[in-house]
């Protein structure tokens, strides 16, 4: 979907963006547009150029070539004017450890010129929204990782920005905090905020975003709505089987015994089974057990963006550097 094609004014327009560090080209001619009110995902493996791109969009880095317009303002010429429209949540919770949670939010609000009464009210409102009221008067340095992340997101939206840029907002935090953050992001998006999210959690991008761009080695290799991206894998049937044996050897035997199915080893004792028809799990498990494997798990999977990513990029899903949140899966 092209931003201008949908008729809505673009919130972010990027054309021919390039950035090199020495001889390494981190961003190679990116062009894309994000419509006002859209939840846009920027998905790619570590080192793909996501953070470099977001840094250029928010005015923390200068492009070597290309143009960036945020809210219609040319960021390369007038970055400070554009910065008044945006909120930023960097990949690290970079607030002030010596200040309390409340003081941090109040200070961040002051950076955007909010008067004192409004700063106080907004800080209290966001502390309550993230369940941090009891920690309001504690120093930020003593917060847990999940609490830090929530406060960093609160600081990013303290001035009610039109656009919010988030760099890996839920990486490495506990499940409950991640869910709370996703719910908050969904809420502010519904309220009209344009959200630009970079992540390597495919499930997170699929759940939150309306449109996604896959970036690999500084280039966008595919960009579309989540629904359209998922089209090619609709109707595919997937099963993941795990057992205590070597995957490669057993895969070959499985492929010979079930020629109608496709088998992809995903690691030691882990295989992904794919077919255009429903996969019957029982015969597969029986075959493995009769071959001496001890099956630990056989699970049907829903075709997901991960499959699309693998198809489009030719990279293994592991290239996204999948991490699990503390105590559970990203989803």
């Amino acid at each position: 979907m092209n931003a201008t094609a949908c008729g809505a004014a673009p919130a972010i327009e990027v054309a021919g963006l390039r950035k090199s560090f020495g001889s390494v080209e981190a961003v190679s001619g990116l062009s894309f547009a994000v419509v006002r009110g859209e939840f846009f995902g920027f998905l790619g493996p570590n080192g793909a150029g996501k953070t470099t791109t977001i840094n250029m969009l928010i005015g923390l880095a200068r492009p070597d070539a290309g143009t960036i317009r945020v809210g219609g303002i040319d960021c390369t010429r007038n970055p400070k004017a554009a910065q008044s429209l945006i909120g930023v949540v960097p990949d690290e919770s970079n607030l002030y450890p010596e200040l309390t949670g409340f003081d941090n939010l109040s200070f961040c609000a002051a950076l955007y010129g909010l008067p004192k009464a409004e700063r106080t009210a907004r800080a209290r409102e966001l502390l309550a929204a993230f369940g941090l009221e009891k920690a309001a008067d504690r120093r930020f340095g003593g917060y847990s990782k999940g609490m830090r992340r929530k406060l960093a997101i609160a600081a990013g939206v303290i001035h009610r920005p039109e656009m919010l840029f988030l760099d890996e907002p839920t990486t490495g935090i506990d499940v409950a905090s991640a869910r709370q953050i996703r719910q908050f992001l969904s809420d502010i998006h519904r309220a009209g905020t344009t959200v630009f999210l970079t992540t390597h959690y495919i499930e997170e991008a699929e759940r939150l975003c309306g449109r996604i761009a896959f970036i690999v080695s500084g280039r966008i290799v595919r960009e579309d709505t989540v629904a359209r991206l998922l089209d090619p894998v609709k109707g595919r049937h997937l099963v993941r089987i795990e057992w205590n044996n070597r995957a490669g050897e057993m895969c070959a035997r499985l492929a010979a015994a079930f020629p109608e199915l496709s088998f992809q080893p995903e690691g030691p004792g882990l295989v992904r089974v794919e077919s255009g028809e429903p996969v019957r799990v029982g015969p597969l498990v029986r075959f493995l057990e009769e071959a001496g494997a001890e099956v630990a798990e056989a699970r049907r999977l829903r075709p997901s963006l991960e499959d699309v990513f693998v198809q489009v990029t030719g990279l293994a899903a592991g290239a996204l550097g999948r991490e699990e949140e503390k105590g559970g899966h990203a989803a």
């Binding site: 928010i58 005015g59 400070k80 004017a81 970079n94 607030l95 002030y96 450890p97 950076l111 955007y112």
Partner: peptide
């Protein structure tokens, strides 16, 4: 060093 300065650099302050 601890990246708190970035918060100032992305604020709309000259």
């Amino acid at each position: 060093k601890n990246r708190a300065f970035e918060r100032l650099l992305v604020a709309p302050v000259p």
